[in-house]
Computed example of a mutant assay.
Amino acid sequence: MKKRGNFLFIEKKDNIYTLSLTPELQDDIGTVGFIEYSNENTLKVDDPILNLEASKTVHEIDSPLAGKIVERNEAAISEPTLLNSAKTEENWIVKLTDVDEEAFNQLEDA
C-alpha cells in the first residue's frame, strides 16, 4: 500500500514504512547535491528527517508520520543524486517501524 504526505511517498510492506521523494518534489528541487540526515532515531509528525541542497533550493524534508528510523539510505550521503532517481530502490530516504496504522491510513492515497 502506498500513500502520500509532505510531498513524500510512504510505502508500507509488512511493518516497514519506506519514505521517498515524489516525482513532483524531485522536479521542484532539481538535482540533489548534498544531504545531511538528522541525528534523531525516533520521529514525531513534522520532525526533520534530512536537509538537502539541490540545484533549485535548500530544503528540509519533514516526516509525515511518527515512527522509529530503522534504516537510512546511507548510499545517498556519498551519492545524493540517488534521490533524483526514478527507481524506488534508489530514491528512498528512510525506513520506519512503530508507525501508527491509523495515521498511515489517513494519509492521501498515492
Rank of each mutant, 00 (worst) to 15 (best):
S78A: 15
K13S: 13
S63G: 12
F9W: 12
E102V: 10
E101D: 15
E53P: 00
Y37W: 08
Q106N: 15
T42R: 15
N15W: 03
F7Q: 14
I10H: 03
I61S: 00
W92H: 10
A76T: 02
S38Y: 08
L19Q: 07
I93L: 10
A76M: 03
A54N: 01
S63I: 05
P80I: 03
Q26D: 03
K2S: 14
H59G: 01
D62I: 14
T22M: 08
A86R: 11
K87P: 05
K2C: 12
T97Y: 02
V45C: 02
E60N: 09
E90A: 05
L82H: 02
P64L: 02
D47N: 15
E60G: 06
S20H: 10
G67P: 01
T18W: 06
N73M: 09
D109L: 13
W92P: 05
F104G: 00
N105Q: 13
F34L: 15
V99N: 08
W92S: 11
K87E: 14
V45N: 05
G67F: 01
T42K: 13
N6S: 10
T42V: 14
V94W: 01
L21V: 04
S38C: 06
N41G: 13
E53W: 05
F104I: 06
S38N: 13
T57F: 01
P48R: 10
Q26W: 00
L96T: 06
T97M: 10
E24A: 02
I10K: 02
N15I: 08
D100S: 12
V94E: 00
D98Q: 15
I69S: 00
W92D: 03
Y37C: 02
N73D: 04
L50K: 02
F7M: 10
K68E: 13
D98T: 11
V58C: 08
N41Y: 06
E89H: 09
T57Y: 03
L19R: 02
G33Q: 08
V58P: 07
E40W: 02
N105W: 05
N39P: 01
F104D: 07
I77E: 11
D62E: 06
F9L: 07
R4P: 02
L25Y: 09
H59K: 07
H59Y: 14
N41H: 11
N91Y: 12
N51A: 12
E53S: 07
E79F: 13
L96H: 09
P23C: 08
K13V: 14
I61E: 00
G33R: 12
D100W: 11
I77M: 07
D46M: 12
D98A: 15
N105S: 15
A86M: 05
V45R: 10
V32C: 10
V99D: 04
N84G: 08
D109A: 11
T81W: 11
E53I: 09
